[in-house]
């Protein structure tokens, strides 16, 4: 196994909400290799965003972190603010779900790109302007020079997401975390943005973490999938394995909720119930109350993740040892 680019180990996050302390992550293990494309799927509220915001120290003072986030041999958990700032953007960039409100409404696009270029590459003036235009061109924005003078509210959501990607590229990072980058966009724009991310990855070799609640989106754009549920990674496997031999009942649930592109049409089956709130988790396995394969032993303890096959991990008492 080569040295991972980033290695998240037993990451926990507790939010102090004033009234109580709520555990949002219960020991997340997730490593990303250089250049790898990893998908992170799970229903809304399962902890996908919190995982990566925590890794970059972006959760603010109400969050307590535990565990480790190893990046280039350093542990980012509990490290100095300056150290985190040097990693953010420069080594690991992140883009978000709502592109139009991720840009500052009072500045022109060119100025916001210029800020990233000044910060990471020390560029200013006409050089920065030229580079900003090149980046916009790179992410497929026509008439880039003119667009530099636009404000975010003058551009569509898809265009703003392209701007966010251009800004992320400004520092030439080793990895991009895209948190539901297309959820707020309509289907054709979604496809274009995902295509753009693929293209950039091919050109630059940067690693990609694609966060989505849609297993289909992740399947088409990544090599490996981590399935998250209630603050834990419950399954981690290559794309092909996930589809061929899902080991966790939650993954199977997500798969059966997916429309089939080929083969006979069948009814989509949504998983019954909802993700439990972090302060109201069931005993034992968090998925037990919604699980089709529930048995009494599920309530004994949260199951540990076991290696079902080479590179295929699952956290279910039925995985691995016994056949399903």
């Amino acid at each position: 196994m080569p040295q991972p680019l980033i290695d998240i180990r037993k990451l926990t996050v507790d939010f102090d909400t004033g009234r109580r302390i709520v555990r949002a992550l219960h020991g997340v293990d997730l490593a990303v290799q250089p250049g790898e494309a990893v998908g992170l799927v799970g229903e809304s509220g399962s902890g996908k965003s919190v995982t990566w915001l925590a890794a970059l120290g972006l959760l603010g003072s109400r969050a307590r972190l535990g565990g480790q986030v190893l990046f280039e041999g350093r542990n980012l958990v509990g490290s100095a603010v300056a150290e985190l700032e040097a990693v953010r953007g420069a080594c690991i960039a992140m883009i978000f779900q709502d592109p139009s409100s991720s840009l500052d409404p009072v500045y022109r696009i060119g100025k916001q790109l210029g800020e990233a270029l000044q910060l990471h590459r020390g560029m200013a003036g006409t050089a920065a302007l030229a580079e900003a235009a090149r980046l916009l061109d790179r992410v497929g924005i026509a008439d880039a020079r003119r667009r530099l003078g636009d404000y975010p509210h003058e551009l569509s959501g898809g265009m703003n997401q392209r701007v966010m990607i251009a800004m992320a590229l400004a520092a030439e990072p080793q990895m991009l975390v895209a948190d539901e980058p297309t959820t707020a966009l309509d289907a054709t724009i979604q496809a274009q943005i995902l295509e753009l991310l693929q293209e950039i990855r091919r050109d630059t070799g940067m690693a990609l973490v694609l966060i989505s609640h849609d297993l289909g989106v992740v399947a088409e754009n990544t090599d490996r999938v981590c399935v998250m549920y209630a603050g834990r990674i419950v399954e981690d496997a290559p794309i092909g394995t996930i589809f061929a031999e899902p080991a966790h009942p939650y993954t199977r649930g997500l798969l059966s909720a997916l429309p089939e592109l080929t083969g006979p049409r069948r009814r989509l089956v949504a998983i019954p119930g909802v993700v439990p709130e972090p302060w109201n988790l069931p005993r034992g396995c968090s998925f037990a109350p919604r699980c089709a394969a529930f048995e009494a032993a599920c309530e004994a303890a949260a199951p540990a993740s076991v290696e079902v096959a080479q590179g295929h991990w699952a956290a279910c008492i039925r995985a691995g040892g016994r056949n399903l």
Binding site: L56, L58, D98, S102, D104, L119, H120
Partner: peptide
């Protein structure tokens, strides 16, 4: 609480500059 503040931090901008250049003008 706006997303662009978190996005500015994610860009690597030091907190002082996030406050001075993004939070205060807005």
């Amino acid at each position: 609480g706006q997303p662009f503040i978190r996005a500015a931090s994610a860009k690597g901008l030091p907190w002082r500059r996030v406050v001075a250049e993004h939070a205060l003008p807005n």
